Amino acid sequence: MTTLTLPPETRRGTTALRNTATLAWRTLVQIKHNPMELMDFSIQPVMFLLLFTFVFGGQLAGSPAEYLQFALAGIIVQNMLFATMNTGVGLNTDISKGVFDRLRSLPIARFAPLAGRILADVIKQAWAIVLLLGFGMLLGFRVTTGPVEVLGAFLLLVGFAAAASWISVLVAMLVDEPDKVQIFGFVLIFPITFASSAFVRPETMPGWLQGFVRINPTSVLSDAVRGLLTGGPVAGPVTGSVLWGLALVAIFAPLSVRAFRRRV
C-alpha cells in the first residue's frame, strides 16, 4: 500500500492553518469565562440601533420606521468599523501581558497568534451583523431583495471587517498600551462614519463636503449593503467596497506584519 506524502511546504501550510484555528478558538472560548467580551458585539450594537432609530428617526426621515429602512445598513457598517478596534486592543493586551512571549516558545507558525486573533474577531463580527439585522427586522426593517443578495451583503461586510482589521493591527503594534488603540480608533472612525452616507443622504450636506462623502469607504460600503438589502444601485458600490477592502489589505497587512516581527 502506497502512503501519500505531502510536500514539506504543504505540511507547513496545513500546520500553520491548524495553529491559527487553535488560537482563534482560544480567543473565542474566553467568552465562556468572561461574557462581557461580547458586549461590544451584542449590547452596544443594539443600543446604537435603538438610539438612532427612535431618537433621530422622526427628525431625519419623518418616522422611525422610514429611517430604520434607510439607516440600518449604515448602523451595521459603523458598528463593524468600531468593532475592528477590538482586534488591536486584544493583540496589544496579549503582547503587554507576555502572552506572545510564551507562544513564541512553542513550535507553532510565527504568524498564527496574529491570524488567530483576526479570525476570532471576524467570527464575532459575523455574530454582530446577524444580530443587528435580526433585531432590525423585529423593529420593522424589511428586506426587499432576496436570499442571495442578503448573503452577498453578509459576505461583503465580513470581508471588509477582515480587511479593516489590519489598520487596528498596525496601531496595536506601534503603541504601548491598549487604551491608545481605542483612542486612535475613535479619532479615525468617528469622522469617517458620520461624514458619510451611513446615516443621512449626501445631498443634504454642504457642497464642499459631498465630494469626500461620496468616495468615503464608509459611504461606499453603506450604499452597497443598502442596495443589497433594500434595492437600488449595487454593482458600483459593491465593486467600490471590494476595491477599498483590497487596498486596505495591500497597504496595511504588509506594514502590520513588518511591525509585528519587529515587536515580537
Score class of each variant (00 low, 15 high):
6 L>F: 07
6 L>H: 11
8 P>N: 07
8 P>K: 08
13 G>H: 01
15 T>H: 14
17 L>N: 08
17 L>I: 14
18 R>N: 12
18 R>Y: 12
18 R>V: 14
24 A>Y: 00
25 W>P: 10
32 K>Y: 11
37 E>G: 15
41 F>L: 09
42 S>T: 15
44 Q>F: 15
44 Q>D: 12
48 F>H: 11
49 L>Q: 00
51 L>I: 15
53 T>A: 07
53 T>K: 00
54 F>V: 11
55 V>Q: 09
60 L>Y: 04
63 S>N: 08
70 F>E: 10
71 A>F: 04
71 A>G: 09
72 L>K: 03
73 A>F: 02
76 I>M: 09
77 V>F: 05
77 V>W: 01
78 Q>A: 15
78 Q>L: 13
79 N>F: 05
80 M>R: 05
85 M>S: 15
85 M>I: 15
86 N>K: 13
87 T>I: 12
87 T>W: 02
88 G>D: 05
100 F>V: 15
101 D>I: 12
101 D>N: 10
103 L>Y: 04
103 L>F: 06
105 S>M: 13
109 A>W: 02
110 R>I: 11
110 R>F: 11
112 A>G: 03
119 L>R: 01
124 K>G: 06
125 Q>T: 13
126 A>I: 10
129 I>E: 01
131 L>R: 01
132 L>C: 08
132 L>Y: 01
134 G>S: 07
134 G>F: 06
136 G>Q: 01
138 L>I: 12
138 L>P: 07
139 L>F: 03
141 F>E: 08
141 F>H: 00
144 T>S: 10
146 G>E: 10
147 P>M: 13
148 V>S: 09
148 V>K: 04
150 V>K: 00
151 L>E: 11
152 G>P: 01
154 F>Y: 08
156 L>V: 06
156 L>Q: 03
157 L>G: 01
159 G>M: 00
161 A>D: 08
164 A>F: 12
167 I>T: 08
167 I>M: 11
168 S>M: 03
172 A>V: 06
172 A>T: 05
174 L>W: 03
175 V>I: 08
178 P>H: 00
190 F>I: 14
195 A>N: 09
196 S>Q: 05
197 S>N: 12
199 F>R: 00
199 F>I: 05
200 V>C: 10
201 R>Y: 09
204 T>G: 14
204 T>L: 14
205 M>E: 12
207 G>S: 12
209 L>K: 04
210 Q>G: 09
211 G>T: 13
213 V>E: 08
215 I>P: 02
217 P>S: 07
220 V>I: 04
220 V>D: 04
221 L>C: 05
223 D>T: 03
226 R>A: 10
226 R>N: 07
227 G>L: 01
228 L>V: 06
233 P>R: 06
235 A>W: 09
238 V>L: 01
246 L>S: 02
246 L>Q: 04
253 A>E: 07
257 V>N: 05
261 R>W: 07
264 V>K: 07
264 V>I: 15
264 V>C: 10
